[in-house]
Design a binder for these strands. Structure first.
Lengths: 111, 111
DNA sequence: TCGGCATGCTATCATTTCCGTAGCAAAGGG
DNA sequence: CCCTTTGCTACGGAAATGATAGCATGCCGA
């Protein structure tokens, strides 16, 4: 379960193209969720575990990957996004509003 | 392996908040990749399978989920993004450029 | 009308990943 | 000392994924 790095073969892509590497990384379970939970706060390992509703084993693996990817870093006051991580998160912030609109697709169909 | 729907409990989130549902859906393997491959073209099942470098079993499961999520639809000329899917993809298009910049983090470290 | 071919897709099984729980080592107070 | 919190690891069962083979349908040319 190697951490995907640009220029290296990753699951689902022999090319190592950065976008493919990134899609592999973000497509692993809890990765997007972890980034999301850290979008506006720093959290300890355990606080992050609760926030993301996951367990320490998966969380630890994801955190290792995200740290190797320079998206997350651990400081005295807990885990938080790096400058790169914050930059990436900017891309995802509109997702929240988008998801709300998307959810309305089901509102009319449930009774 | 139920398709996540807003207002319903999903893996990693009891709340059913749309953003959590979306993060669960997008966090499943190959989901982001499939959306990415369809960003500017329609593909047959087999063409999509090759493009995304995956296998029919996983592809079929993901396509079912994406169709139920109204993000992908099948027409005579193959699979393609729905209006909602295209809208969502707009959010991710900047990722390509971002990933190229991100990859440079490793350029200086490889020798 | 009979191959051939491409289509979407399913079945099967081995492998990988994930999940849930218990617990450890270190650091800091009281 | 002991209690708490920290980050994190070990383990076993469950679930998801991956790879391959193959089916049913429809189309097209001979």
């Amino acid at each position: 379960m190697p951490t995907p790095k640009p220029q290296h073969r990753v699951r689902g892509s022999a090319s190592g193209r950065p976008i493919m590497v990134l899609l592999d990384l973000l497509g692993r379970r809890m990765t997007l969720r972890i980034l999301w939970e850290l979008r506006d706060q720093r959290l300890t390992f355990r606080a992050l575990q609760e926030a993301a509703e996951t367990n320490p084993s998966v969380l630890n693996v994801r955190l290792k990957e995200l740290r190797e990817a320079h998206l997350v870093a651990l400081a005295d006051d807990g885990y938080g996004l790096t400058a790169h991580g914050k930059d990436l998160l900017q891309t995802f912030l509109p997702l929240n509003a988008w998801a709300d609109g998307w959810a309305r697709l089901w509102d009319g169909k449930r009774r």
